[in-house]
């Protein structure tokens, strides 16, 4: 499956979804001009990726651990809904039994970013989220 790589801008985050390198990251600032146009391809990519995981497990009997890293400086409320969708998608994979976890990074001076991550995690069923202060 092809990687999905998006360069960051002043108002949209950097996206790395690279199965070959086993790197998955969303980072930076998120208040895109058209939020759904930005996030829908990411969510669609993740939906497709779930079938890759299925195939991997079927072929090798197991799926390698995946870590999705979230390193936001800022996201607006419209982005929050889509970030929730991304996490929900990962949660679905975790519920299917794939070894997936998320890392939520936050500036140690920014308690709000930590709390936002905690609010998200309360809405998830299975996905483990590790909170990392930087």
């Amino acid at each position: 499956m092809n990687a999905l790589l998006i360069d960051p801008s002043e108002f949209s985050p950097k996206v790395i979804l690279d199965p070959t390198k086993n790197l998955f990251e969303l980072s930076g600032e998120s208040r895109p001009e058209n939020t759904s146009k930005f996030y829908i391809p990411i969510i669609q990519w993740l939906e497709q990726y779930q079938s890759v995981l299925y195939w991997e497990k079927d072929k090798f009997g197991h799926s390698a651990p995946k870590v999705f890293e979230f390193k936001f400086d800022y996201f607006n409320s419209t982005s929050a809904k889509f970030i929730m969708d991304v996490l929900m998608q990962l949660d679905k994979m975790a519920q299917e039994g794939y070894p997936i976890k998320a890392k939520w990074y936050f500036d140690k001076r920014d308690e709000d970013m930590k709390e936002s991550g905690e609010e998200f995690s309360k809405l998830l069923k299975k996905l483990p989220i590790e909170f990392i202060e930087i």
Binding site: Y74, N76, D107, R109, D110, E111, D112, M113
Partner: peptide, 11 residues
């Protein structure tokens, strides 16, 4: 202005 206030004001 402190970082947290800056971020909140920005938001």
């Amino acid at each position: 202005v402190g970082v947290l206030t800056q971020k909140r004001l920005y938001g």
